[in-house]
Design a binder for these strands. Structure first.
Length: 590
RNA sequence: GCACCCGUAGCUCAAUGGAUAGAGUAUCUGACUUCGGAUCAGAGGGUUCCAGGUUCGAGUCCUGGCGGGUGCACCA
């Protein structure tokens, strides 16, 4: 539908200029553009709407009168083979004719070599995304899933829409915790197995925290060990490396499940060599000042609000994570030369990022304005909290397990009710239950505002009814199964399509297919994958209505069958690409 | 205490400052002689937390309350 906007803007611009010269420019302070065309709330009203409220004051006329005059003026200026123009109250509405929908949308979707709505690669800004960033030597916590899923989908969408995208996983692989871990490894050395697994590291980490409650000396010794690590001690380095390797093996499994990839695994340790020169430079320039034994940068928010200063060097001489984040931003700017960088990190770190950005501003780095923190909300579970420190935490593993079990149960129940020839094998059910639970979790995450906290109820997330991941997956597999039954014929010409696809169900489905690119664009503008998720639900609703009302297989009308099959192909393409963008698996049968 | 985020149907959530605030779920009622019913059609359900303000127009923006969440220098 994107392509219809420019001719409309041209016609409107011409008509407005003839009717009310200069008024639009005066009111909007610019020419009218595609952004001035709205989508009517009800499909019956039209495909595009131009509201006339704004001009009302200047012209001293009621909006409906303006829209009436404008409608009369603009109607002859648009191609009647494409648009019907209708006034409705204060709006001028444009309705795309069926033939235009088929030529301008359906043909595009069917012929696109890449995903429909693709913009030429690297034709837009350089955009860096940082997301996921789990802590090494800890299990992948459910807390990190949101940023992983949101970051994954936004960066994929940005790539599709022509941005030059770089994705970074800022692993939490540096900090005092490795001092504690090393202390624990030494203390419990004789209790550890030969092949240390991630869960062993977690166990002793929790234990050492308990020990610390009664023996405060441990914390000081652990901090001393981290300092040794930072100073390049070989033993400490070896222990640290082992922890990283053990963790990465686990993380890779998770990323494979959700089809998540990164261009760079640049953990906190990656920037370690730059910390000393950075601190020296800042001290020399007096940006960094001493206060109570620590070295700090006094900072404000962008709006000038008061916030606590940023500590870059602790009184024991060690760095903290803010130091690494400052160094990381500078390194990335130098090596990637981004136009924009988005940190997708939990909302409890809002202050942290304000402090880091504040340091960059204090350093006089103007590009600091290109950085943004997209804070993600927390999961709300009924009774459990998520804190590794207290040893009471929820891992992604546990959640996945619960969801898989739930989906397995539902699938087995359903399978038992099917005719024998439609039943799935036990092996298939296992695989599909996994895909379904991953899809359900991803959709639950992406269908709401990423900033808001999210209620996570397994029975609600993995439901086979209503607006869920499985609903979308099911529609997709149904497209596949229809196409398996319809023998492939040459794709129909647009004239054939136009004579056969005439019902409102078919035309509305085509209209909805045409909205795909703008749904992605809105997701990116608002940093909300939920825009695409909601779009896919709407698309699937339209497909299901079409499916219900319009039989694809018509043995006595080959042309109709071919035309409708084309529509199913188009739906499968768009829905499939949408699922890819959200990281939702596409089972080939369900 | 201060700062930031949130408050929409019984519940979980939508809604580029625009047309009658929408979905799902739960409750109730319908729909397969034909492509898979994990579907579709319909009903009831609202003072958008409260009070002011800006605007032609506010769930959305501003101010003040109330309620909830998160954070508040040497953890990440």
């Amino acid at each position: 539908m994107e392509r219809f906007k420019n001719p409309l803007v041209e016609a409107l611009s011409k008509a407005l200029n003839e009717l009310f010269p200069g008024v639009v420019e005066e009111v909007l302070k610019r020419k009218i553009g595609p952004q001035d065309l709205e989508t009517p709330p009800d499909r019956a009203l039209g495909d595009f709407a131009f509201p006339c409220f704004r001009l009302s004051k200047q012209l001293k006329k009621a909006p409906p009168q303006i829209s009436q005059e404008l409608t009369a003026k603009v109607a002859p200026l648009v191609d009647p083979a494409i648009f019907e123009v209708k006034q409705a109250g204060p709006y001028v509405n444009f309705i795309c004719n069926p033939k235009a929908l088929i030529d301008g949308v359906l043909k595009d979707v069917l012929s696109a070599a890449q995903a429909y709505g693709t913009v030429a690669p690297k034709s837009r800004e350089k955009w860096v995304f940082e997301y996921s960033s789990p802590n090494v030597a800890k299990p992948f916590q459910i807390y990190h899933l949101r940023t992983t899923i949101v970051g994954n989908s936004l960066s994929k969408m940005a790539r599709l829409r022509g941005y030059d995208v770089t994705t970074i996983n800022h692993l939490g692989d540096w900090g005092t915790q490795y001092g504690k871990l090393a202390y624990a490894i030494k203390k419990y050395a004789n209790e550890l197995p030969k092949e240390i697994a991630l869960k062993d590291l977690v166990d002793i980490y929790v234990r050492i925290h308990k020990d610390m409650e009664t023996d405060p000396q441990i914390e000081k010794d652990a901090q001393a060990l981290f300092l040794k690590l930072e100073q390049g001690d070989a033993d400490m380095r070896a222990i640290w490396k082992k922890c990283v390797d053990i963790s990465m093996r686990e993380f890779e499994k998770t990323y494979a499940k959700f089809n998540v990839k990164f261009d760079h695994y640049w953990g906190e340790s990656f920037y370690e060599p730059q910390l000393k020169p950075l601190l020296a430079d800042l001290k020399k320039r007096k940006v960094l000042v001493e206060d109570k034994g620590a070295w700090i940068v006094p900072v404000t928010t962008r709006a000038g609000g008061e916030i606590p200063p940023t500590i870059l060097e602790k009184s024991d001489g060690a760095t903290i994570y803010a130091t690494r984040d400052v160094a990381a931003a500078i390194y990335r700017k130098e090596h990637l030369n981004f136009d924009r960088m988005t940190y997708i990190v939990g909302k409890e770190q809002i202050l942290h990022f304000e402090q880091v950005f504040g340091v960059l501003r204090a350093m006089g780095l103007a590009w600091e304005s290109q950085l943004e923190h997209l804070p993600t909300g927390l999961y709300r579970f009924k009774d459990a909290k998520m804190s590794t420190r207290k040893g009471n935490f929820i891992t992604l593993e546990e959640v996945l397990e619960l969801c898989s079990e739930r989906s397995l149960t539902l699938m087995k129940e359903r399978n038992a009710t099917l005719e024998a020839d439609q039943r799935l094998s036990d092996a298939d059910i296992e695989t599909i239950a996994d895909q379904v639970s991953v899809g359900a979790i991803a959709f639950a995450d992406l269908s709401t505002d990423p900033t808001r906290d999210l209620d996570f109820d397994v029975n609600r997330v993995v439901a086979f009814e209503g607006e869920t991941g499985p609903y979308l997956q099911y529609a997709h597999t149904r497209c596949l199964s229809i196409l398996k039954k319809v023998s492939a014929t040459a794709s129909p010409s647009s004239a054939e399509l136009a004579t056969k696809l005439t019902s409102s169900f078919e035309l509305n489905l085509i209209r909805q297919l045409g909205r795909f690119p703008e749904a992605i664009e809105r997701s990116l503008d608002q940093r909300k994958p939920s825009q695409l998720a909601t779009y896919l639900i709407n698309l699937t609703n339209d497909f299901n209505s079409f499916y219900r009302e319009c039989k694809v297989m018509n043995p006595d009308d080959a042309a109709l069958t071919a035309a409708r099959a084309s529509l199913v192909v188009a739906t499968k393409n768009v829905l499939g690409h949408g699922l890819d963008l959200l990281g939702i698996p596409k089972p080939d049968k369900m």
